[in-house]
Write a protein that binds this DNA or RNA. Sequence first.
RNA 1: GCGCCCGUAGCUCAGUUGGAUAGAGCAGCGGACUUCUAAUCCUCAGGUCGCAGGUUCGAAUCCUGCCGGGCGCGCCA
Length: 550
Amino acid sequence: MNPDQLASAIRDALAAAIAAGELNIAVPDEVPLERPRSREHGDYATSIALKLVKESGLKPRQIAEILAPRLEAIAGIAAVEIAGPGFLNIRLDTAAAGALVGQVIAAGAEYGNGTSLAGVKINLEFVSANPTGPVHIGGARWAAVGDALGRILSAQGGEVTREYYFNDHGAQIDRFARSLLAAARGEEAPEDGYGGEYIGEIAGRIVAANPDAASLPDAEATELFRSQGVELMFTEIRATLHEFRTDFDVYFHENSLHESGAVDKAVARVKESGHLFEKDGAWWLRSTDYGDDKDRVVIKSDGNPAYIAGDLAYFLDKRLRGFDLCIYMLGADHHGYISRLKAAAAAFGDDPDVVEVLIGQLVNLVKDGVPVRMGKRAGNVISLDDLIEAIGVDAARYALIRYSVDTSVDLDLDLWTKAGNDNPVYYVQYAHARLCRMLANAADLGIDAGEDYDPALLDTPQENALIALLAAYPGVLRTAADLREPHRVARFLEDLAAGLHKFYDAVRVLPMGDAAPTAATASRLWLSRAARQVLANGLGVLGVSAPERM
RNA sequence: GCGCCCGUAGCUCAGUUGGAUAGAGCAGCGGACUUCUAAUCCUCAGGUCGCAGGUUCGAAUCCUGCCGGGCGCGCCA
């Protein structure tokens, strides 16, 4: 019996009590169910009796007393106790709890998936770093979290399109082009330009391919360095992200919106909406309706589109492609965009809720207890490449995903390269590798777990706890998807790994010496396989490898 | 000044919709390997959940006001 089945059994008990006239309420949609911290409080506990106080007009313990005998009569429930203010503490029958192991193995790689987003077309835009330099650490956070979120939303049945918006238009690109040209000519970088080492490197590659590039007339040369520089930078960014196991379905070029006339069209359309107004010769988006502290210019008084005109056109494009939900993952320095993007949706006649903006706080790197300097403009870049080189893809992804994006984090580079259980990614991966070795040993010994197992034999506290962890996984995935919080999966995996290690330490799986395998051996092998499956599934969702040996 | 995020153990951080005695890892003390990977496990210790009010059967969680830190407030992109 898993938590979902238990929750629906409780709902059935409520319905029965209502039908019998003992309760005068509607059957609640959700039944709160938790795994109590203390084992003395049973396998599961529900506060449903406390929640129904107001609606029923009864005292919590009265409600609990109505429910307890009905629950106790359900097959698979061993005992029900009323405790505290009105909690119902539920103890499962060992065999009923252990049956979950078979469900996990039957579901395999699909175990944990749900349908809460079935059929929802989701556009997930993340990273979208400017092609004026390598992906830096902030972009890296989104690469890891965004990719994991994509996998989590897909696991709930969402039809996810990962998208990278490529700002290859405008003044920053012009500065980038001039910086490249200056580097190629051996001149100082322009005052407002880019000065990192990569500028010289990219310029060198352009010159190598076009030997006379630097000596062309300024306008022509700038254009050449612009187009080729952007292309080279883009290729490099894509390669780095690919190495980081983050690939996109769509790389969208901002410039294409301007060249195709999509921007003009989008603006023309939105001018009629009432969300745009003309003032001082410019056209403004009434973003204050959605919490902005001032309205924003869409068409400047010189007739040129402002930056957000591109955002408007891009949003319209997404909607025309049929997305039900557009998620934008932005850095903390862009939180002001939320109201603009909501206003943009409203201007096109959409519910602003189709736009969802996730804001990620900044990431700092720490080495030897000292913050590592960063700053893209200065060229003192901590890039994603650097991070991968320093701690590897698995640790980097895991480290960036593990924390709520609401909090700024300091990543300690020393910690994430350590091989020990203070390094969470090793701790989790080791649990998986340990199981793989043990299961391989079982195969070497010719021990066959058989077609079936006896769930009632999984009766130690460690086995009980491990099974409960496996049972909790679908709920964790569901919550992570609902709240767009991949870090929950990582935290769960750490709990699961701890549960596994405790089990491994306390319960011998394979027979000692020459002893013959028993029925318990088979049951424990089944449990081990199930645990390995869930560890692998969870790591898979994070895009972190599940090694078979370490 | 205004907006967003954060403030939980010495350190790094968990803690969805309010629920029982607030958790984990590290650091500290003391233990456990002749047999499945000790990259592990067990014990002890560690707290005014920033402060002050409020809401209620019940608040780390919700509301208000303060304090402290990060980020942002262009007809730039």
